[in-house]
Design a protein around this nucleic acid. Structure first.
Lengths: 154, 154
DNA sequence: GCTTGCCTTTGAGTACGCTCACACGCCTAG
DNA sequence: CTAGGCGTGTGAGCGTACTCAAAGGCAAGC
């Protein structure tokens, strides 16, 4: 039933919000475990990033990706999960250097959990103030809109 | 009462949130109108930007700034208001090129109100999805934190 | 008078995060 | 068998938005 899979894939791509893999797609990837590894194009499409970016992330050590016998990248569920996390952190403004440090900590094992938590706590604060800033900007924008709607004022 | 002013200024600087002039400070600036123009250092401090950035914004035509007889910039209430708006738009990700276009429209007069409103409507949408993205990132971050707190899990 | 410090202009330099060019390899369809 | 399409690694290039360097001016305090 290959066309069935293709159809489901197309539907999923059409439905998923831009800029993120859906939770459902991720869950499905986790369910059948190792059979459904994605190639670089599929992965890039789901994550809404450039395939070049995925190669770049691997080059700088953010993810390790296995290869098939042709030497092509195959992204398994663990890699996708990490990439989802990484792209979320990136789109929320965490610098690449911090992410490199973070994955180094992950690779170093359980002893680094306190430092990782410290990083996440700090990022949480950053995110909260970012959201607050954006809400101010949104208010300013809506104020302008209201002004333009209300009066022919400059 | 110059030391009084200085004291109030210091207090205001201490209290204002980083990354923004307070509404109160702006209102006061508007109240006594032309007497309280700010120099570049004061303006930069209130807007939480580098003085170099203010010169840059003027250079590329985002603001017009008057000079005192020594040739130094003096930011009046109108300039500050525009800069507050500009920095809000910048911190919320509007590109400089769009801002240039926007101020050109403002300078071109009332006829451009529809296009300006169009820009603001579009930016409002951008902001809303940005906020949604950040809230996803916040949820992911809080999930990590909870994981690290709950179990000594990777 | 001279130093100190903040200001001026202009052109150049930097940081970041991709993004691309190039030269080549594998696999499938016609 | 060969052409098309997608993949590979590596070094170089790019866009954005600042950020700084250099050379000099003015004004107040010692």
């Amino acid at each position: 039933m290959e066309s069935d899979d293709a159809l489901r894939e197309a539907l999923r791509l059409a439905v998923d919000p831009p800029g993120g893999v859906s939770i459902e797609a991720l869950r499905e990837l986790a369910r059948d475990d190792d059979a459904t590894d994605w190639d670089i194009a599929t992965t890039a499409a789901h994550l809404a990033v450039n395939p070049h970016t995925l190669r770049y992330y691997e080059r700088i050590g953010l993810v390790r990706v296995t290869r098939n016998k042709a030497g092509h990248r195959r992204y398994d569920a663990a890699a996708i999960r990490r990439l989802v996390f990484l792209t979320r952190m990136r789109t929320s403004g965490m610098p690449i250097s911090d992410l490199r440090h973070y994955v180094d900590l992950v690779d170093a094992g359980h002893d680094t959990v306190p430092e990782r938590m410290e990083m996440m706590l700090e990022h949480r604060d950053t995110l909260r103030s970012q959201i607050a800033q954006l809400q101010l900007a949104l208010a300013a924008t809506e104020y302008k809109i209201a002004t333009y709607q209300g009066a022919p004022l400059p």
